[in-house]
Write a protein that binds this DNA or RNA. Structure first.
Length: 276
DNA sequence: GTGCCTGTTACCTC
DNA sequence: AGAGGTAACAGGCA
């Protein structure tokens, strides 16, 4: 669930609640496999005493710049952060907790246990196999064309692959392809020049919309996306095709259908997005 | 209870 | 290169 807009919302909210500048007093690990690379004890020892100098994002990774290290967090399916008082007891899905010297604590909940934390040295951030940042200045039409060049894969799995463009997941890819009027199974080498241009423009449009709506929170159950303060996003009300099967296409009123592409549920308008 | 579905990614084989 | 399958894991849902 958390894709680029959700992660970006979390980053911004962490700044709003003045997490930058906080000093980590200690850490607790309730599910060891959340911590990659280091043994949980070593992780806790190493991170204790460090100050959060900055909080940013790279693709779907949260990037905490600490005094000595970089902390990368990937939320995968159900990872969530909450700011609590350090006295609050851990919840059943709490996997890691950072306790700050001011009495606050950052709780990491992750129902499905796929979320991962990586405490690395600053140099190692370059080892992330991530492609273009779609909302940065590096995402030019030229760079986009260049990253497509030579590939023959279907467009949807390509857009989901973080090594080419970083940050898109199943929801936003379906929305992008609807916006650009491209069928999800279209091979990259079949895209016209016009297709590539509309795709290039659709990506930031869809991502910025998601961010301005503070992310997508589908349904009501707990596994969903919630921001650090427990706020829901509202982008689910702006989805044009994702989980809209049976409803009319907002553009042409044709009934939205759901198919499977690369083993992923895929939503599209069969009239706007014709397979060529 | 049973089987199927789910927003992510890594790893494997062909 | 890319397609397809499996796995990690838990819970909702019919």
């Amino acid at each position: 669930m958390p894709e680029l807009p959700e992660v970006e919302t979390i980053v911004r909210e962490m700044a709003e609640v003045n997490l930058v500048g906080s000093v980590i007093d200690s850490a607790k690990v309730y599910w060891p496999r959340t911590i990659e690379i280091l043994a949980p004890d070593d992780f806790c020892k190493l991170i204790s005493g460090q100050t959060i100098k900055n909080i940013g994002r790279r693709g779907k990774f949260l990037v905490f710049t600490l005094t000595k290290n970089i902390l990368l967090v990937h939320l995968r399916m159900t990872g969530k952060f909450f700011l609590v008082d350090f006295k609050t007891s851990p919840t059943s899905h709490e996997r890691v907790r950072l306790i700050f010297t001011d009495g606050r604590a950052l709780r990491f909940e992750d129902q499905r246990k796929f979320g991962r934390w990586y405490l690395i040295s600053p140099e190692d951030i370059t080892k992330l196999k991530l492609g273009l940042e779609p909302l940065s200045s590096e995402f030019t039409l030229k760079a986009f064309k260049n990253c497509i060049k030579g590939h023959t894969a279907q467009i949807k799995p390509f857009l989901l692959n973080q090594r080419y463009i970083a940050g898109l997941g199943n929801i936003y890819v379906d929305e992008v392809l609807w916006e650009a009027k491209i069928h999800p199974k279209t091979p990259l080498n079949y895209l016209t020049k016009e297709d590539v241009t509309s795709l290039y423009h659709a990506i930031p449009i869809i991502l910025y919309r998601g961010i301005s709506n503070m992310g997508t929170t589908l349904g009501s159950h707990q596994a969903n996306y919630f921001s650090v303060s427990g706020r829901r996003g509202s982008n689910q009300h702006q989805l044009r095709v994702f989980r809209q099967e049976g409803h009319p296409c907002p553009r042409c009123k044709t009934t939205i259908i759901k198919i499977i592409v690369a083993q992923r549920g895929t939503h599209l308008c069969p009239k706007c997005q014709v397979f060529k």
